[in-house]
């Protein structure tokens, strides 16, 4: 009896293989690889280094924000303001540099803006118990409007003395890899590490799993929620800075609709809007799948109006898969 109890307790029900098969991100990776293989055979333009360079770079802006959004979604929250925050931070950066300040001052101002916006969202959600949907919907409107006020709704394309540095930051490449891709990989590794190996990461999952239980057992739920909305806004701010450098111009409509795209990426990558589930890798692969779809429609000569249909179907199929695995 003692031996069998011992054995039961020691038994591992899951090996790495069954865990892999159970991971939505794994299946999305497979789907994406299949799509890539199909596209390389059916079109000449897909597997060219120029196209792949473009895809990887385009993925980054969605993916960087999707990392932050995934963290919010893991806690059971939502952040609809990221597209507008991206715009606001880009504009703060652009206007600061246009006024003659250096790139570091500009970036510091943009990052600070992001953190303030995130803290505002977080405090309303965590301490005043506002629903995150409503708070961040309000911020979606406020942040873009502030960007318009700041720039008087003009396009900023002259970034003062450090103009070239900013363009190199976002548009350049290192060892043949686009700079934004490098930032994305570093941020993804960092996010993955935090989620898996730190107490902060563990608490995000706990809050999303059972907020009441987390509170009762002494997890500092409110502080963590404020932090996670700050991280989300920061991810949008970083994406904004990089994108500004890449585009070389900021208009007040950049990042419009971005919030839905990053939520889609997170959900396709396995994050559950009910909270408690999600990974950094999932955020990347979800973003990548969306970009591959977008890219391939163009290459296959399919009308761009179909894009929404394909991406929307992906979301629904991903969730359907998830449900099937659960009920099995």
């Amino acid at each position: 009896m003692a031996a069998s109890l011992e054995q039961t307790i020691e038994q591992k029900q899951h090996n790495w293989f069954s865990l892999l098969l159970n991971s939505q991100a794994f299946w999305v990776t497979i789907a994406m690889l299949l799509a890539c293989i199909f596209l390389s055979y059916s079109t000449d333009a897909f597997a060219t280094s120029k196209n792949l360079y473009n895809i990887t770079r385009n993925v980054t802006f969605t993916a960087i924000i999707a990392l932050g959004t995934t963290m919010v979604i893991i806690t059971g929250g939502i952040d609809l303001s990221v597209g507008s925050v991206l715009c606001l931070c880009s504009m703060v950066l652009a206007v600061t540099m246009h006024a003659g300040f250096g790139i570091y001052t500009g970036i510091a101002a943009a990052v600070l803006t992001a953190l303030v916006v995130g803290a505002f969202n977080g405090i309303l959600v965590a301490y005043l118990d506002f629903p995150p949907f409503v708070v961040t919907l309000g911020m979606l409107s406020v942040a873009r409007s502030l960007a318009m006020v700041l720039s008087n709704n003009t396009v900023v394309f002259e970034f003062g003395p450090d103009h070239d540095k900013l363009l190199a930051l976002g548009g350049g490449s290192t060892f043949g890899i686009a700079n934004p891709v490098i930032y994305m990989v570093v941020l993804a590794l960092l996010t993955g590490f935090v989620l898996r190996w730190t107490r902060f990461g563990r608490y995000l999952y706990a809050i999303g799993g059972n907020e009441q239980a987390a509170t009762l057992t002494g997890v500092p739920v409110r502080r963590i929620k404020v932090a996670v909305y700050m991280i989300s806004a920061l991810s949008a701010g970083i994406a904004g800075i990089v994108q500004t450098g890449w585009l070389g111009a900021v208009t007040t409509n950049i990042g419009a609709g971005m919030e839905l795209q990053v939520i889609a990426a997170a959900v396709i990558g396995g994050a559950n809007l009910a909270g408690g589930v999600g990974t950094a890798y999932g955020a990347l692969v979800g973003s990548a799948l969306i970009e591959v779809i977008r890219n391939s429609l163009g290459l296959l000569g399919i009308n761009a109006f179909w894009q929404g249909t394909f991406i929307g179907s992906c979301i629904i199929i991903a969730v359907a898969f998830d449900r099937m695995r659960r009920t099995r």
């Binding site: 059972n210 239980a213 987390a214 009762l216 997890v219």
Partner: peptide, 24 residues
Amino acid sequence: VHQDLALCNNLTAAANVFLGREMR
């Protein structure tokens, strides 16, 4: 031991035992 146990369904047994005082 809280009424209705205060456990997180999405975490492992060990993670729940140590919730709020994780070994590091």
